[in-house]
Every structure is written in structure tokens, then in C-alpha cells.
């Protein structure tokens, strides 16, 4: 942050975008919890996007729409957010940072850059969320979660307006953050969702992060589709998952351990699916 000389307070999205267009070394700031610690060294102008009215949570018929600058605490406390994925999104919010951090961290900040320690990118994937974005030309567009992840997050200059979460309450959902202490950077984050009809898996989503970059594990999803829940070959699925993930280095904990963890946590999610399906 050492080059920052300007801090701007636009009062609408249009102003924010033109402030960015004027000065290419700009960075948007919302919660700022990651920014203030000093990562983006060439930033000259900070543009505060917390005063643009982007913090509403709306209850739609099919979708829940959460404004990008909604704090994680507000999401956690929202009865509307609780409806998403039988409460799985609320649970994921609970496991982000700690209380004073959740009071500052925003939904948009948590998903914009796809940091692997962030809690919500995998949620986007298993919930089939849609991200509404506006670019500096003031063109609004939507991207699906998968595309957002493939893009590597949002482009410089774009602002996330909101995220639409389908409720997907007919699906089974699981979310796990495994870390040394509750308030710790995750060692492994995993989200899993499955649609089951008459005992058979008809669709599935599995996403992980930290252990590797935020990613959906499509080979496992494909392997699950068509399977009878009661007859899942847990060991085989575990192996498939392990072989589908290219585990990144983490000086705190070995690849070997995290590979085992990956299998165990997934196995337990499948067992929970079996329990709930019965």
C-alpha cells in the first residue's frame, strides 16, 4: 500500500467505474481486510465500494440474491441466506475467519480473487451460483460459477454487483473446512452437493480448495452420476478423488497427509449422504 495517495468514496456504481477508468493503478476496497495488510504495492488510488448500496439480500422465487458488499456476518445472520442449500451457505460463512473479521469481510471480497484460503469460492461451484458483474464500460453481465473460476476471478476494473444462489434445497449438501484450530487458515476446504432421485444420484458437484487451486472435481462428479446411493463404492471413489487432485505444496502439512484427509472427508460426506438418503 505504500504508493497509495488517494482514497475515493463514489456514491454510485457509475462513479466508481469512472474513477477506476481515470487511474489505472486503482484498486476497489470493500472490507479491506486483505488489502490493508499491504499486498498490492502499485496501487495509487483506492476506490471504496461499500457505499454503493450493494449490500442487500433479496429473497427471490428460485434464487437468493446477495449483494457483493454484504458482510459475512450479515450473511450468517440472514434468515434468507439460511435457506440456501439447507443451511450449507450459512455454515460456510460461520467457518470464515473470526467474528471481527466476518464483520468486515464481504461476499465480493471473498470470491473476487479466488484466494485458495477463502471459504466461499467452492460454495459458488456446488451451489451453481451466478455472479453479476459490471465492467468499466458499465456493461452488466453474468457469469456462472464455473466460468468465474476458469477466468481466475474477476477482471481488473470490474465490480461484482451480486451473487445469485439457487436454493437447491432438493439436493444434499456438505461443506467442510479442516484446519489446525477453528480460526486458522484452512488445510482443505471441500464442498459437495448431490441430487438424488429414488435412491440414485442424478447430478453432483464436488469442489475443493487450498489443497489445490479452487476447482471442481468433474471426474468424481461423473462417476457419481447414475450410482445408487446405497451401493456406492466408497474406497473407489476416494481413490478417484485422490488421483484427480494435484495437491499443491503447503509448508505446514505434508501432501501425503492431505491426500489421506481428502479421502476421509469425502468418504464421510458420502456416508452422510447415505444416511440422509435412507
Amino acid at each position: 500500500m505504500k504508493n497509495v495517495t488517494e482514497y475515493k468514496y463514489p456514491s454510485n456504481v457509475s462513479q466508481a467505474l469512472s474513477l477506476f477508468s481515470e487511474q489505472k493503478h486503482s484498486t476497489y476496497i470493500a472490507g479491506g481486510t486483505h488489502l490493508a495488510s499491504g499486498n498490492r504495492n502499485n496501487t495509487i488510488r483506492l476506490i471504496d465500494i461499500t457505499r454503493l448500496g450493494l449490500n442487500e439480500i433479496k429473497d427471490g422465487d428460485e434464487n437468493i440474491e446477495v449483494g457483493a458488499t454484504t458482510t459475512i456476518t450479515d450473511m450468517y445472520n440472514s434468515p434468507i441466506v439460511k435457506k440456501v442449500g439447507k443451511g450449507v451457505l450459512k455454515k460456510a460463512c460461520r467457518l470464515i475467519g473470526d467474528t471481527p473479521l466476518r464483520n468486515a469481510i464481504t461476499l465480493g471480497g471473498n470470491i473476487a480473487r479466488l484466494y485458495t484460503w477463502a471459504g466461499l469460492p467452492v460454495m459458488l461451484l456446488t451451489l451453481d451460483a451466478e455472479i453479476e458483474i459490471i465492467n468499466p464500460l458499465e456493461k452488466t453481465y453474468s457469469v456462472e460459477a464455473v466460468e468465474h473460476i476458469t477466468n481466475g476471478g474477476i477482471r481488473d476494473g470490474d465490480i461484482i454487483l451480486n451473487v445469485k444462489f439457487p436454493q437447491k434445497n432438493s439436493w444434499f449438501h456438505a461443506y467442510e473446512k479442516f484446519a489446525l484450530t477453528t480460526v486458522d487458515y484452512t488445510w482443505l476446504t471441500m464442498a459437495f452437493a448431490a441430487e438424488v432421485k429414488e435412491g440414485q444420484i442424478t447430478d453432483a458437484r464436488l469442489a475443493v480448495s487450498r489443497i489445490t487451486k479452487v476447482t471442481r472435481i468433474t471426474p468424481v462428479e461423473k462417476a457419481l452420476i447414475g450410482q445408487l446411493v446405497s451401493q456406492l463404492d466408497l474406497e473407489k471413489l476416494k481413490s478417484l478423488l485422490k488421483s484427480s487432485v494435484d495437491i499443491v505444496q503447503d509448508y505446514r502439512v505434508s501432501k501425503e497427509y492431505r491426500s489421506q484427509l481428502l479421502g476421509v472427508i469425502f468418504k464421510r460426506m458420502l456416508q452422510k449422504l447415505q444416511e440422509e438418503t435412507q
Binding site: H34, D48, P100, L101, N103, A104
Partner: peptide
């Protein structure tokens, strides 16, 4: 009225 950590917020915020 929300508890936040002032060491990772900019004063301007």
C-alpha cells in the same frame, strides 16, 4: 456498532 479489527482497516474506510 460492529466489532472490527482496526489494524487491518484503513482509517479512510
Amino acid at each position: 456498532d460492529k466489532a472490527v479489527k482496526s489494524c487491518i482497516l484503513l482509517a479512510a474506510q
